[in-house]
Amino acid sequence: MSKLRALVPSTHSLFVFEAAARNLSFKRAAVELNVTQPSVSLSIKTLEKHCRVELFVRDNRGVRLTEAGSVLYDEVRAGFRRIEQAFERISERGTKYISFAASMSLAAHWLAPQLYHFQQEHPDIRIKVVATDRDVEPDHEIDVTVWVRRRDFSHSNAWFISDEIIFPVCSPTYLASHPQLRCVDDLTHHQLIHSSDAYRKRMGWSEWIELAGGDSSQVRTDIVFNDYQLAFQAALSGEGIALGWSFTNQYHLKNRNLIRPLPDEIRTDRAFFLVANDRLGQSEKTKKLVDWVLAQSEELRP
């Protein structure tokens, strides 16, 4: 059992005390609590007697907190706020987040740099980005996510974003300080950044170079990152050339943080899809997020 029950005459007395201390007026506290002023005075006197300390100084000009009253008010106010926040989190009136699950690279390099635009347009909508190293089903916890599936993929509440197009990318500073690339085979003379995701199948450099008509026998795998996000970051930092994906790299290519040192690209039989859970029809806010993602990626669709 909490010791609080023994320390206060009643929980109601804490509400009365908080209102009186915040307003520094028994009269205004009475109006706020919809009780009489004598009732407020009695509750405060009962609390003071129980605590064996004066909480208010009473004079002709009104009331003010004593040192003990100030200490108690600070803690009661903070405690009430924490309780309010807890109820907000568990109640229907609490802040509702739309959860967007995405790969680490997509979350960091497409969503994060642009979500503030969406927030400016829709200040009443709160977004929770869930970065994950594997695909997740949109369910009661995840509202929207992005999958890469075969081009003919069909699913309820799914929208085509763009084809999966893969091409070399690097930073302008890397290209400025290294030999120019004239063909695919020139790639093997550069620092190629490799990644190998445990739960997502991604095309590697050897496969890409072969499909692009080059010779992959000279490809070196000096450093391999276990997450594409790390390879992406290394490319942004000017450490070498990484493979880039149409949707994931869109933002940085548009802003020239990354460039394509060669025009060659591989278009696979797969595509990016935006997928929402079955509650989409009940959520106007989720629909707005879906519309925004599709609008932001419109240039990727033919």
Rank of each mutant, 00 (worst) to 15 (best):
A29D: 03
H178R: 12
A112H: 09
E265C: 06
C183D: 13
Y199K: 13
L243S: 01
H190I: 00
S216F: 04
Q296Y: 03
F80P: 00
I44W: 12
L274K: 03
S156E: 10
L280F: 14
A131Q: 10
A19E: 09
F167C: 06
H12P: 00
F153V: 04
S2Q: 07
A212K: 01
D59A: 03
F273R: 03
Q229Y: 14
T46I: 14
S99H: 11
V219S: 05
V31W: 07
E48G: 02
P261C: 05
D139K: 11
E92Y: 09
N60D: 14
L181H: 07
H12N: 07
M1R: 11
L65D: 11
F160T: 03
S154Y: 15
N157A: 13
E32M: 10
I209C: 02
Q233R: 15
L294H: 10
V76R: 03
T268Q: 14
I166Q: 10
T132H: 04
K96R: 14
R58H: 11
L258R: 11
I98W: 02
K3M: 13
V129G: 13
P172H: 04
D152R: 03
N34Y: 12
R58Y: 08
W245S: 13
S70Y: 08
R93C: 05
R150C: 02
F273Q: 01
R149V: 00
L106A: 02
K45S: 14
R64A: 03
S283E: 01
K3F: 12
T248H: 08
C170R: 07
I193F: 06
K201V: 08
R301H: 10
P113G: 07
T46D: 07
D186H: 04
P179D: 03
K49M: 06
Y228H: 15
S206P: 13
W110T: 09
F17C: 04
G240F: 07
A30P: 15
T36K: 09
V35E: 02
L274C: 06
Q250D: 09
K285Y: 12
W245L: 15
D264N: 02
S217H: 08
L230R: 05
L236Y: 10
L55T: 01
Q296V: 01
A29I: 06
F26R: 11
Q233G: 00
R279Q: 09
C51P: 00
R134E: 10
D135R: 01
T11Y: 15
K27S: 15
Q180V: 14
W245V: 11
D215M: 02
V275I: 06
E265M: 05
P302Q: 08
